[in-house]
Design a protein around this nucleic acid. Structure first.
Lengths: 224, 224
DNA sequence: GTCTATACAACGATAGAC
DNA sequence: GTCTATCGTTGTATAGAC
């Protein structure tokens, strides 16, 4: 699947994101009518990502968020319970999206090396269509101090673990030589992150996500 | 020079950092007695990095900073003029430190490939001894909206440019084959950043900066 | 479900005594 | 040069009318 197809399929069920948010947080979302709630959730989340990614989540205030969404301050509290809860909703949605997209065994190729590059490609594609979400999660993860603080760290390690497993299996079957799969996986991860952390740089240079994938693949294969 | 030597030399003139801050910001620092100002500046900066790197700079408040430093709120305003100025002082000090450490032509090896790895090694060493500073600058650069906003971006591109130049020269002299030096340099940069962004991960795994350098070098050499 | 009005705490910053 | 006390503003969150 190339990026064009991935994007088309993703856009077809973008609504699914807010449906999930709506269902998973029914305890804090007071508005029960989905027809009304879903579009407003989308407005709130989109605006939060836009403002926060410029000034930081702590720098964003709820009055400004109201202005950006066109929803009054009072009405917003029918959706978000608290500012901190809004933070956790976003971060948890990102980790959930990653697990759905690259964690599904049935989608993954069997061959370990094919699987390695499938994970890398899919991760890049997902972080491209959800760039604001990924950027936000990376930058604000440290502010996320609920019981599930480890969620952010776990998410970092989740992808790394999948990569490590591919490398280990590939080394075992003799397809590749890799004396330290954990170290190798740890070097792939920042290459994935750079794509959504430095969007401005790559956009300005006209580098597409498919072109970036090819670079990364070439770079990695040279070491295998 | 290995890390042990680098660290020893750096620690010998750590005071230099606050001397520079003191001199460069004499317009906003009201306390003119260096004997008094320098230790207090160190307290303020150290505490700012500590608190901000946990909760974000916007999340830090000046009363908390006063508690951490043992300096009263009123007295602090003899040093910082405003919270935003404190932010810019820190970020500018980081970019200045980078330029001093890796930008000095006289220190650099002549051979382009040796120079490439000298820059990588020195950058890793510097970001290790100034980890809190580097982490802070990366995370808070987007909040830095004075006229010199580009400073943060320039700093990102400054290192990349040095790397690109090494690769270009190496390709020209035929020492290496590199069809896209800019792309290659762009892949090295995140590997340098990972070291100070994910300290917790590497410390936990017992990876030293010298060990990390060896990994990175090996990884890069495989592609040259 | 959405709005306006408002409570209340916390923040950055300053004044003025010492 | 440092302190305490305080100003004025802004922030999160709630109350209650519609």
């Amino acid at each position: 699947m190339n990026f064009h197809e991935f994007k088309k399929q993703f856009e077809a069920d973008t609504a699914q994101i807010y449906r999930t948010v709506f269902d998973e947080n029914s305890d804090s979302i007071k508005v029960k009518n989905a027809k009304i709630a879903l579009p407003n959730l989308e407005k709130i989340f989109t605006a939060t990502l836009k403002i926060s990614n410029r000034n930081g989540f702590q720098g964003m205030n709820l009055r400004g968020l109201g202005k950006e969404t066109g929803i009054s301050l009072g009405a917003m509290y029918s959706y978000i319970e608290s500012k901190e809860r809004l933070l956790s909703m976003i971060i948890q949605q990102v980790t959930a999206s990653i697990k759905v997209a690259i964690g599904d065994r049935k989608e993954q190729p069997d061959d370990p090396i094919a699987r390695l590059f499938w994970i890398i490609r899919t991760h890049l594609y997902l972080s491209e269509v959800m760039q604001e979400w990924f950027f936000f999660a990376f930058m604000e993860a440290r502010n996320f101090k609920t019981e599930g603080r480890n969620d952010a760290i776990d998410s970092e390690l989740f992808t790394e673990k999948l990569l490590t497993d591919c490398l280990k299996e590939g080394a075992r079957t003799g397809q590749i030589i890799c004396d330290n799969p954990e170290a190798f996986a740890a070097m792939i991860k920042p290459l994935l992150q750079d794509w959504y952390l430095k969007t401005w740089k790559y956009k300005r240079r006209g580098v597409t996500v498919d072109a970036y994938f090819i670079r990364v693949e070439k770079f990695i294969r040279a070491s295998l």
